[in-house]
Structures are given as C-alpha cells and as structure tokens.
Design a protein around this nucleic acid. Structure first.
Lengths: 260, 260
DNA sequence: CAAATGGTGACAGAATTTGGCACTACTTCG
DNA sequence: CGAAGTAGTGCCAAATTCTGTCACCATTTG
C-alpha cells in the first residue's frame, strides 16, 4: 500500500513533474505568458514557477524571455520534447526499419529520423549500446535491382527479432524451420553471421556446420526460430559481393555518436 | 546559481532517479542479486531499495523474485527500457519513415516498430497528438509498381518537413521553387492537401489557386519551401485513383491508440 | 522617472523521502 | 522439525528536499 498508493497520489496531485508539464502546456497553448500568469494558472508561487522554468531549460527546453513592460516567456515550438519509454527490442526494430528504408533509397527526412534514433541510442544503457553496435556490424545492405521481383517478400515470423538478438549477441546458434523456393521444408541450425538486405528482400546469412559452408535464408521463409546455446560459435568473414557493404560503413554517424 | 547548481548536484549525487538507475544497472550486470547486496552497492538502506524496486515495477520493469535461501531478485531482460526525449519533428520523421516503409512492403518487425511509435505517440502532449492525426489523415499510400523508375528519387530539402508541418497544421499556404521534369523552374504557392507516396516517389498534392486545380509535386524537386499565412485555406476532397488509400485506413491501429 | 517584467538570494515552514525496527510469509538446508 | 536466509509490509521519527515569502537587482517601455 504505501509504495503504490504514494506513487499514485503523487501522479494525481500536484507533483513537480505535473506542474512543469502544466507550464509547458500553458506556454504552448497561449504562445506567450508572464511568470505571474503562469503562477496563478498552475497554482504555485512566482518563485516556484521561476525555479521550474530554470529546470525546464536545464532539461533542454528553449524558453525565450523578454524583460520589461510587454515582455513575457515564450516556448520555442521546436524544442517541444516527448519522453518515451521504449523496450530494447522496440529500439532494435525502429533502428533496423530506418536502416532498411535508407537502403531502399526512398527515405526523406532521414536526418531527423536519425537524430531521433541517436537520441534513443544515447538513452540506452551502455552495455546495450555495445550490443547494438555489434548487431549493426552484422547488418549488410545491397543495391536495389530494378529487375528483382518486388512483390515477393512475405511476412516474417514475429519471434525472429528476439531470436536474432539473442543469437547475435549471446553467440548462440539459431534453429528454425525453413521452407525453400520449391516448398521443401527442412530444419536448420546455423551460426548467424550477418543480416543482409537486398531490397525488398531480407536474408539471414548463417554458417551451417553440418554443410561446412555459408547459407542464405530468406527471412520470410523462416518459421519457429529459436536461439540455442553453443560453445563453438565464432565470427567468420562472410564473402559478400562487391556491391554489398555493411550498414555501419554507409552511415558511420550512428557509430560515432557513442563510444564503441 | 541555486537553481542550476542544485539540479547539477542532484544529478551528480544520489538522486532517486540515479539510485533506481543504479539498481537497474546492477541487476542487469550481475543477473541476480539480493536486496541487501543492492542496498550496500547503491549506498542506501534495505527499506529504500525495496521501495525503489516497487517503484520500478510500477514503471513497467519486470523484476522476478525468489524467496528463501538462495533466492534473490532478477530483472527480466526484455523489460529493459530506455527513456528518450524526442522533439516533435523527430517523432514526425520517424512516423512518416515507418509509414513509408510499410507502404513499400518490405517492413519486417513492423509490429515492434509500431509498438514503439505508439508509445512515443502516447508520450506526446495531447494537442500534438491531434496535430499528428490530422497530418496522418493527409498521408496517402499508393501501390508499388514494378515498372516504375526506382532510382529516380533524389534528396529532399531538409526544410520541407518543417514547412509541411506548419502548413498542414496551421492551415497555411506553402510556397516553394519547383523544378519540373523538363528542368523548368517555377515558383508555386499552393494549399497543401495531401502527401502521397507511390514508392519510391513522394508527392505533395496541393490545390493551386492560380490554376484553380490540384497539382502533384515530386518532393525532391521542391526547394526553399516556406509556410505562408493565409485566411482562405480549406480542406478539399482530393480525387485519388482507386489504388490509393489513406494511411490511416491501411493502419487504423495508430489512430485507435488515442482518443481523437 | 515609474511601472512592468524576468531573475536571484536567503530563510523558515511544509512536504517528501529515507532509515530503522518489528514483523510476516515463504523456501531451503541440515 | 527447526534454523537460517530471503522478499515484502507497516509504522514512525529523522533527514532531506521542496515551496512560499520577502527583499532586491537589471532591463525595457512609455
């Protein structure tokens, strides 16, 4: 009771966070406002509002102020921010999505999207950032060929991303059922070495120990994926064609935004 | 000084937030840990750590616990979350990016990406959500034709998104320089009515008052865009082809996730 | 100059957080 | 079974932080 109820009450009543949000909303709505007007609106003292303004500025909000008669506070609309809590798989999904679209060549506003993603990355715990880098190293992008069958990509198994993450990062095998172009079904167990995007088709490049060679698997033909613990896993040099390059090379800014 | 210094000190020293982050990091690193070990590590009392654990659970972290000898706390790795502060244009860019990729048909993990976006949307101030809905209403997606020239899309003007947002939401004209297929340059001033994606090409559909008709503009041929105040703006029914449908119709879940 | 406005410093009282203690419930080990 | 180790709860006083009040400064406008 004391834990949960305290927190609930806090959220309902006049929390610091709630008050600051109210200030931001008011500034957004009215365009410009004075400290005293804000104080009355949120039901706090002038001093407290000024303290909150300072805190908001520290958090990155850009609040212009004019002193003197006719002056007031004004929130820069571009500095409006939102706090979102994302799980790690969601971040991975967003990152891969944007990467894939850049690969397909039709990504406008990519600078903004990347800026957003970089912020999300920075908010990740540092160990997860390392994982993310390792994952991006495995992501390779090929050239879009106009001659390809563009409608051929089906739906992927929703469990695939989780299995990938576990397999790539934890150096596990990945086991799955595969349905090839001739509808033959086999069960595979490979070491995942890279992810390859040849728009609009996605492939898993894996080392198949049973066949002692690399194999490409179209992701939409994979079902029931599963990460399997292994001890013998090692990174191998994947022999890509000349027109395929790693995503991290195409867009180095993602890697330079953090330490690894 | 008191404002900024107080806040800085708080961030440096043992804030509630800092302590809870430390707990999460420790659990993540050690895999499993007891309350007492955590208390010693973060320099707080056992009681406080337990309160923090409760708060973290309230925030959505999944923390398993085993009682009895050999028990302890364990953080579910899938529940790791990141707090990112995104500006509104960044959210727009991410949303449009994912929308476009779904349109192109090669979006794996779209459920996860959407879940992430929905969370971001929920964190937006409510007035911005309304704007976002209005914007998505204007976004239309066409069928990908294999016969199209797929390498034709150039780079868009980075100011375009900002001008769009202002124009769509504030019901402004949008003014820009346009370079048509025959390299003729004209200056246009239109009421933006829709955004159309025929992968990989993007178009602005505008009502041109000077010509009293709709016009399509390829976005990569627009330069120096600018929102211009107007009083006569009104929404018009854009006569799309049969194979074009609004994005909000294709993916209604984005709209049902909030109130508007 | 007077009025209006943003901004700072200091301090006492209000509110919240923290620590300590006693206690319960459960599990494992001997 | 009993002892020990563990998560979890309730309560209260102490510590800490937040808030309001007041005095004051700097700048701009009329």
């Amino acid at each position: 009771m004391p834990n949960s109820v305290t927190i609930c009450n806090k959220a309902r009543e006049m929390n610091v966070r709630v008050r600051q949000d109210a200030i931001v909303r008011s500034l957004r709505r009215n365009g410009t406002s004075t400290v005293d007007a804000l104080a009355e609106e949120v039901g706090a003292s002038r001093r407290t509002v000024l303290r909150d303004i300072g805190a908001l500025r520290n958090e990155g909000y850009v609040i212009h102020s004019d002193v003197g008669r006719g002056g007031g506070l004004q929130l820069d609309p571009q500095s409006m921010q939102t706090r979102a809590k994302l799980s790690v798989p969601e971040v991975f999904a967003l990152l891969i999505s944007v990467a894939a679209m850049r690969a397909a060549g039709n990504l406008p506003f990519s600078e903004l999207a990347d800026a957003g993603l970089a912020k999300i990355e920075k908010a990740l715990p540092s160990d997860k950032v390392k994982d993310l880098c390792a994952f991006l190293e495995c992501l390779h992008i090929g050239q879009l060929s106009p001659l390809q069958n563009l409608s051929g990509m089906g739906k992927m198994d929703p469990d695939l991303l989780g299995a990938f993450e576990a397999a790539f990062l934890g150096r596990h095998f990945i086991r799955f059922d595969y349905r090839d172009a001739k509808e033959r079904k086999t069960e595979r167990q490979v070491e995942p070495q890279a992810m390859l995007i040849l728009p609009p088709l996605w492939y898993l490049v894996g080392w198949d120990p049973a066949r002692d060679d690399f194999r490409h698997f179209r992701m939409d033909r994979i079902s029931s994926p599963e990460a399997v613990l292994t001890t013998s896993f090692r990174r191998r040099h994947v022999p890509f064609e000349d027109d395929v390059c790693p995503y991290s090379e195409l867009h180095p800014e993602l890697r330079s935004s953090h330490s690894c």
